[in-house]
């Protein structure tokens, strides 16, 4: 791993409400290689969304810095796309599906024909070509989240940032979307950083799982997932390596919870 990391966090810390305020994140150091898929797991309310907002350039960390492609960021970088949990509120209800996907491509000097092409391509990748002229409310939750993913893909990011992207869809859709993400990540060669509270999901999707825990939250452990080749919901989840990783991640989260108050301050 001697190439420039796609995403790098250096001593990242966030404290809300000034020096005497609530410290949420402390000293997060993390380096993510290009084409890597990394999940960040931890209890809900631990500061995962704060972390995501910092990586997305939507929030300035109190200490430390975020580097995307080797450059420290102070605003949302052009090479990064964010897919968040509440798809119902991140698609514009007044724009048809195709226009939702197109919106980030407008005003950046792309010819209309190129925009059309990218929108059509992104929608076909997520299997929603026929929904292009629908409004978001006419689609199911899972379909709306696929539109949000299509919007991110059409934007052609180098880094795809996902904040609990599958948390509000049903289990079957969730499994489909997980596999879709793995396929896309493999085919398009993008770096994916995904935040989740679901341990199974994190192990299933990741090359590495980063366990974050405690108050303030620190990086507790980084678990390598030694499963090579194409993953699938049935065999991978029965793989002893998968189960071993899952146990490791789970116990790490448990440990972080127990030691949480001791670290706090």
């Amino acid at each position: 791993m001697n190439a420039t990391p796609a995403v790098q966090l250096r001593d990242l810390g966030v404290t809300y409400g000034g020096a005497t305020g609530r410290e949420v994140l402390r000293g997060i150091d993390l380096s993510i290689a290009p084409n890597e898929i990394v999940c960040i797991v931890g209890h809900s309310g631990i500061g995962k969304s704060t972390l995501i907002r910092c990586i997305a350039g939507l929030q300035r960390p109190t200490t430390g810095e975020v580097l995307i492609g080797g450059t420290a960021i102070t605003a949302p970088p052009a090479t990064l796309a964010l897919v968040s949990q509440d798809y119902g509120r991140t698609l514009m209800p007044w724009l048809r599906v195709g226009e939702n996907v197109r919106l980030p491509l407008r005003g950046v000097g792309l010819a209309r024909a190129v925009q059309d092409e990218r929108v059509a391509e992104a929608l076909s990748v997520v299997g929603l070509v026929e929904a292009a002229r629908s409004y978001p409310w006419q689609l199911s939750g899972g379909m709306q989240q696929r539109v949000a993913i299509a919007r991110a893909l059409a934007y052609r990011p180098q880094v795809l940032l996902m904040d609990e992207p599958f948390a509000s869809v049903d289990a079957q859709t969730r499994a489909e979307l997980e596999d879709l993400l793995l396929t896309l990540q493999r085919d398009l060669g993008i770096t994916v950083v995904l935040v989740t509270h679901d341990v199974d999901e994190s192990v299933y999707l990741s090359d590495r799982v980063v366990v974050v825990g405690g108050r303030p939250a620190l990086v507790r452990e980084i678990v390598e997932v030694p499963i090579s080749g194409v993953r699938d919901q049935l065999t991978t989840k029965a793989d002893p390596a998968f189960i071993a990783c899952r146990t490791q991640v789970l116990s790490s989260i448990q440990a972080s919870k127990d030691s949480g108050s001791a670290v706090g301050g």
Partner: peptide
């Protein structure tokens, strides 16, 4: 969330 998305995509 809508405003946040607009910001993150640099609309």
């Amino acid at each position: 969330s809508v405003r946040l998305v607009a910001r993150s995509y640099r609309i």
